[in-house]
């Protein structure tokens, strides 16, 4: 299992940041992703950035609207 914004979701072998975004339908562009307190550099890295089992992942959506 991993935690995404405090919520537990199942982990699988080879899981990437992009898999999480797809699973959660996080489509907003202005996000920052941190895994175990470490930032993930750029959106183009999301497909290639692995997420380890047991990770604490924060997907922070920047403020928007108006």
């Amino acid at each position: 299992m991993i935690k995404v914004n405090g919520e537990e979701i199942p982990w699988h072998e080879g899981m990437t940041v992009q898999n999480i975004l797809d699973a959660k339908n996080f489509t907003f562009r202005m996000i920052s992703v941190w895994i175990n307190e470490n930032p993930v550099e750029r959106r183009e890295n999301y497909n290639s950035t692995p997420v380890p089992d047991g990770a604490e992942v924060e997907v922070v959506h920047m403020m928007s609207g108006g």
């Binding site: 914004n5 405090g6 919520e7 996080f26 907003f28 924060e58 997907v59 922070v60 959506h61 920047m62 403020m63 928007s64 609207g65």
Partner: peptide
């Protein structure tokens, strides 16, 4: 909304 509902 994002800060509260999505980012928790």
């Amino acid at each position: 909304i994002f800060m509260d509902m999505v980012n928790k």
